[in-house]
């Protein structure tokens, strides 16, 4: 357990600058976009006041009071682009977290495999670290939102602003509404499914590393197999199934069960490959 935690820490430590950079870029890009939009809006409000009410028809008019929900709506791209960057970097790191240990002359994988700890811990440490990166960026974004609301309060004088609820702010942004679901149960399903997909990819990567040329093929077959197993209840056992029709509750339980099986098999297979089949 101890060595597992140390490995997690090692993985976090190696990635820390990238993580900090991603958070920094997100904070700066989103906040500056926000401030720029607010200043532009306030200038436009001034204009609208001077020119009178009919000017409204010609501009994308700005509402009488600005709130964070409106600001988020008008600053969408500035918020979404850093999020896309984070997603891209983390997606690449799903692969890179393994392949970086094989790269170059300094193949660190030697050292990792020689550690006096179960090889399973290497696998678990990498998934733990990756999940932590994902969740920490989500948490960072969630913490940034009230901070950005504060920025809004500092930039916009009190007579020109009104309140909005953080849930509305999230929902008006096309990316955040998907990444931060309203219910915690849905959060569990989405990120749980994401975790299982990453586990599948990890095992596929280890298949590639263990079997040289055939490895890529095995990896792809493994991914396809897992996807089929999980989709099976939804495709083949629904109400109009000719094999065995299941009631909705039964389908739900079956899908959850199969997802857990896929997760467990991926961890087991990945660990076994690391222990018995991997070659450097």
């Amino acid at each position: 357990m101890n060595r597992y935690l140390k490995l997690v820490h090692m993985e976090i430590h190696r990635f820390r600058w990238i993580l900090i950079a991603l958070m920094g870029i997100t904070a700066i890009c989103q906040s500056s976009g926000l401030i720029w939009t607010l200043k532009k809006a306030m200038a436009q409000l001034e204009e609208q006041k001077i020119q009178g009410a009919d000017m409204r028809k010609y501009f994308d008019s700005v509402p009488d009071t600005l709130n964070f929900e409106w600001a988020m709506f008008s600053t969408q791209m500035w918020f979404i682009l850093p999020i896309l960057l984070c997603i891209a970097v983390l997606s690449l790191y799903v692969f890179f977290i393994w392949y970086r240990d094989w790269m170059g002359r300094h193949t660190f994988i030697y050292r990792l495999l020689m550690l006096p700890t179960a090889r399973r811990n290497l696998f678990l440490a990498k998934i733990t670290a990756l999940l932590l990166f994902v969740f920490s960026i989500v948490a960072f974004q969630l913490i940034m939102l009230p901070v950005q609301e504060l920025v809004l309060k500092l930039v916009v004088p009190v007579e020109l602003r009104s309140e909005s609820h953080i849930v509305d702010v999230i929902n008006i942004n096309q990316a955040l509404v998907e990444l931060i679901p309203r219910q915690f149960e849905q959060f569990f399903y989405i990120y749980g499914l994401g975790t299982i997909v990453v586990l599948m990819f990890f095992t596929a990567i280890l298949l590639e590393r263990s079997y040289q040329r055939m490895g890529i093929l095995y990896g792809i077959l493994y991914l396809a197999g897992c996807a089929l197993v999980v989709a099976a209840p939804l495709l083949y056992f629904g109400l109009d199934s000719s094999i065995i029709p299941l009631y909705p509750m039964e389908i739900y339980v079956l899908v959850l069960f199969l997802l857990s099986v896929v997760a467990a098999v991926s961890v087991w297979l990945g660990s076994r490959l690391l222990a018995k089949k991997i070659t450097v």
Binding site: R105, H106, L115
Partner: peptide, 29 residues
């Protein structure tokens, strides 16, 4: 078995530590 790695050391043909690591960090590892 993993425990045996305490008893065997291996000096491979290349250093096999990340290039950006300092020697002190490698020792701490």
């Amino acid at each position: 078995i993993p425990e045996l790695y305490e008893k065997i050391s291996f000096v491979p043909d290349h250093l096999r530590m990340p290039a950006s690591m300092k020697l002190s960090e490698a020792l701490r590892f």
